[in-house]
């Protein structure tokens, strides 16, 4: 077991070095994708399936966005002259910092024996108190829902920031390539896959309190499905364009719904007070409060991620091209 983990770690480090040192930007983006996928396997091995799912899907979207973004600018000749001073000083700082922070590792519990002072309580009481047998979800959406609210705000802000920055930019007319979509084979496969992906995403989100997943993971899965549809059928195909128009509103609606769920807690006493019954364990309706929050987050993440993707990777150039031009 340990050997596998070591092997994967070394693989990640090698991948990271390749990603940074390869001259071709496309290759380094692919290398970073490899690092991310390796990381998700590592998460799975380390007993964190929730994170593994999220990591896989996020990595897919990140790589897609990065490739679409760098595709146009990778032809720029990277400056050959490496600044020796910069490399030397950067290395020195990194190495010194490395050793300084390595000194702190001594104070951590040994690998494989976590301290788990608070977490023990979460594990003991989580399922009974929240009705969620997935303790990660119990922590995320019940015990520490405040944190999650803050994090959701960060995501919303980042996406809104990205949209605001890109909006109004003059994009080179590249829309036709995206509009056309991909070859027949890809389309046919996608047609089959899309439904599965969407159902999977919904299931991951809805059953998040019982099985690995939750709103964050499910949201990214759904967004990933829409990304696939956009790339395969083209940006003007019905699924892409309809949801594309809605996406930022879905994002905002999800965030507001999450806030509303939290605010409704005031009826029971305070912010984030649970206002629904626990129900029977191991059933979908067992922790309805968490299910509701998961759905809100699902909307939020799906809308946000897809809106960001559309803005960054599908280049709209002002008015839509005339119908006749598209032949």
């Amino acid at each position: 077991m340990d050997v596998t983990i070591y092997g994967l770690l070394v693989f990640l480090i090698a991948g990271a070095i390749v990603a940074l040192e390869v001259r071709d930007l496309l290759s380094s983006v692919i290398a970073i994708g490899v690092v991310g996928l390796g990381l998700s396997i590592l998460f799975l091995l380390l007993g964190a399936p929730d994170i593994a799912i999220t990591q896989v899907v996020v990595e897919v979207i990140v790589v897609t966005v990065l490739i679409r973004a760098t595709a146009r600018i990778s032809d720029e000749p990277a400056s050959r002259r490496t600044d020796r001073f910069a490399v030397a000083s950067g290395l020195i700082v990194a190495v010194v910092l490395f050793f300084l922070s390595a000194g702190a590792l001594v104070h951590l519990p040994a690998f494989g024996q976590p301290a788990m002072t608070v977490s023990r309580w979460y594990l003991e009481q989580g399922p009974a108190l929240t009705g969620a047998t997935n303790v990660v979800m119990a922590i995320l959406l019940d015990f520490r829902a405040y944190d999650t609210l803050g994090e959701a705000t960060v995501i919303l802000t980042a996406i809104v920031g990205a949209l605001a920055i890109v909006r109004g930019a003059e994009r080179p007319v590249d829309a036709r390539a995206t509009d056309a979509g991909m070859s027949l084979v890809v389309r046919a496969v996608t047609r089959w896959l899309l439904g599965l992906i969407l159902i999977f995403g919904l299931a991951v989100a809805l059953f998040g309190h019982l099985t690995p997943g939750g709103g964050f993971a499910g949201g990214v899965v759904l967004a990933c499905g829409f990304v696939l549809a956009t790339l395969a059928f083209g940006a003007r195909s019905p699924p892409a364009s309809i949801f594309g128009r809605l996406s930022s509103r879905v994002d905002a609606a999800g965030a507001l719904a999450f806030l509303l769920i939290a605010l409704l807690g005031w009826c029971g006493g305070h912010f984030f007070q649970r206002w629904l019954d626990l129900g029977r364990p191991f059933r979908l309706e067992s922790a309805t409060f968490i299910v509701l929050q998961n759905v809100a987050i699902l909307f939020k993440v799906t809308g946000g991620a897809f809106a960001g993707f559309l803005a960054l990777a599908v280049f709209r150039s002002g008015p839509a091209p005339e119908e006749g031009e598209r032949s």
Partner: peptide, 20 residues
Amino acid sequence: LTDYLFWCFLGLTVLLGVFF
């Protein structure tokens, strides 16, 4: 940008060193 980032991390290094 790189130079400013470098100064930031140099400062961090010095601070860490002092704490250490």
